[in-house]
Design a protein around this nucleic acid. Structure first.
Ligand code: ZN
Ligand code: ZN
Ligand code: ZN
Ligand code: ZN
Lengths: 130, 130
DNA sequence: ACATATATGTAATAATATAACATTTATAAG
DNA sequence: CTTATAAATGTTATATTATTACATATATGT
């Protein structure tokens, strides 16, 4: 049967919040902001986050323990992610560069091993902060 | 005056532990293992870790909140790091690939911005686990 | 000897994340 | 519709990771 919307209630609430945020959100910031919607405890937040990461709707910025909505319609599987992170204002942008993705996806190390997933974080100053 | 060894006592103890480990170590694992040497509290561990990361002697594996010794004599500044991480056995290897480093160091995004630092984590299966 | 920066020791607490278990809701099959 | 199964939710407690704050000590340069 055809499924109109694949997000559950909590997942949708949390996705909406992250999606409309201009900056990465931390789990407990999310928790605080969705308590008015009935989501009261950490596990509810973390479970939704896990699912959203798993399906590529959001990504975790590992160096910040924070989450951003995916801005790249081509990466539902979340296996090839790259971000630019401003060291001054904390701004994060998802990088969508086909050449970069191709280069890294096809990268093989000295033993010839290839990898099925990567995450790349660039750090510097954004345009505003330069 | 000439300085023989640039690590303080706590820094040296903690570096030695990480350096002889075959796997990434977490802060509280480190704490547990150096208590016999007189390091008794988290701030002592985290301060040493911060300094060691800052000087490039160790690196933090962000996706694991764990630390490995630098195996790449050329990256004292810790501004261009890449790792391969086995999803099965947790093994981590630092990647030292001049071409990759060059490619990423000279990468500029669509707005022409260049970045002064990056961290790249590849995920897959190591030779043993394949 | 003095000033300054770096490192240490210690207690308390903050921030991030998971375990465990009961219950409910959605989906699919018979 | 009924039943079986999987997915999601609610709730309490706890585990793990990291920092604040403040007192003291050690190293470094003049
Ligand atoms: Zn994406
Ligand atoms: Zn900025
Ligand atoms: Zn290194
Ligand atoms: Zn392995």
């Amino acid at each position: 049967m055809y499924k109109e919307n694949n997000l559950s209630k909590n997942q949708q609430i949390i996705f909406d919040l992250i999606n409309k945020s201009s900056e990465p959100l931390k789990a407990y910031t999310i928790l605080f902001n969705v308590q008015k919607k009935g989501i009261k405890a950490p596990p509810q937040v973390y479970r939704a986050l896990d699912k959203l990461v798993e399906t590529g709707k959001i990504h975790k910025i590992e160096s910040k323990n924070a989450f951003v909505a995916c801005r790249n319609s081509g990466c539902e599987i979340s296996k090839a992610t790259a971000f630019s992170i401003c060291e001054s204002c904390e701004m994060v942008d998802e990088i969508n560069d086909a050449k970069l993705t191709k280069y890294l996806t096809s990268f093989s190390d000295k033993k010839g091993t290839k990898y099925k997933r990567f995450n790349l974080e660039f750090f510097g100053l954004c345009k505003k902060c330069k």
